[in-house]
Amino acid sequence: MAADQGDPNHQDPNRRDFIHIAAGAAAVGAGAMAVWPLVNSMNPAADTLALSTIEFDLTKVQEGQQVVIKWQGKPVFVRYRTPAEIERARADDRAGLKDPQADADRVKPGHQQYLVVIGSCTHLGCVPTFGAGDFGGWFCPCHGSHYDTSGRIRKGPAPINLVVPTYEYVSDTRVKIG
């Protein structure tokens, strides 16, 4: 830089550097602002988000039966549990769970017979089948995760329990999921 001092076209290097950095930063910033709408357009669209709640009539489920409903493109299990299943789930509350959670925290008070869980294995999203597995609940055929009668992970690669979606009882026999 010192050699530039005698140059008639000499400009202060600090000033030139500043212009370079400022122009570069402006270009990067403008580029990012131009790209953001493109990236953001890939997020869920308004009509997709509009499908976010669903109501379900619980009288359609018999005791010991499970109904699979589609919510946000995912299966939701609504299971009318038998007293034996509830008993088994409660007995296992302190059974060294991988993702500890009491059975009572996974159902609504007074409606402990109805278990509502998202029917996607928390490992990689396959749909577990009821009645298989070692714990009386669900078994995922893809990579061998076992869930108990409360939908809690007991064995296999899945990291957490079957997810209980946000839902509420709008009447004694109707639930609103979402």
Binding site: V39, M42, N43, P44, A45, T48, Q72, G73, K74
Partner: peptide, 17 residues
């Protein structure tokens, strides 16, 4: 994951992209 799929689950938005 939601951004990549374009929704909470694999659906039409996913297939399109």
């Amino acid at each position: 994951l939601i951004w990549l799929r374009g929704g909470p689950a694999i659906d039409n938005a996913t297939l399109n992209r």
